[in-house]
Amino acid sequence: MNWTWFHQLGSPKSFYALTSQWLPWLVTVMVISMTAALVWALLYIPPDYQQGYTTRILVIHVAVAGTSLAFFPLMAVAGTITLVWRIKLADMVARNAATLGAWFSFVTLATGSLWGSVMWGTWWEWTDARLVSMLFQFFLLLAVIALRSAMDDNDKAAKACALLSIVGCINVVIIKYSVEWWNVLHQPNSPVGMSNSGANGPEFWLPTLLMVVAVYLFLTVSLILSTRNEILHRERKAQWVRELLAAS
């Protein structure tokens, strides 16, 4: 198998060049799918017999929540690449993934509690295992960001955060199962959960699916954009960045 593409992508310069070609396409597809999903979800989903129009919030919530689960695995993979192959680009991606992941987790929590405020009559409910484990994933992402900002040596910070991401990834999985178990044992009579509720017909999951695609595209685009920014910052002394800046 030919690995040159992998190494090429690993160099900041060619990543920058490659993504310059991809970005217009990605952004176009993302904008179209996002608009379509939003319009469909917020205007055309019929009211659920049990939850009424709140399922429309759920479309966004489910898509963002599903996507935010991808961050720790992503950071763990990037961390492994940083520690084993010492490719600087992996750390740049990981760094931005942590910040983005924290925002995604926050939006998940916010939309979740918005939905909860209607369905449960309260903004926060400890009996929903998903929200609780998302809360701790949020905390762990903030911990990675905090560790990064506490270290002033870039190289050390990269390795330390890479390691913490790998540990955190394993931990998030354990937390997820522990919290679910805890819920089952502790509170047998939990209120309406988010998953097993009525909203599961095709009129619901089709726009959700589209939304998931749109959110993943949004994630990819924002990650690429912030990584490009980071590349320009870290490589500001390199010849090609200077030429690029002089040309613009």
Partner: peptide
Amino acid sequence: ILAVITLPMTVPVLIFGTL
């Protein structure tokens, strides 16, 4: 920073310890 890093990781122990 030590507490911020470590405390979230201890949740599973806390859950089953108290249970």
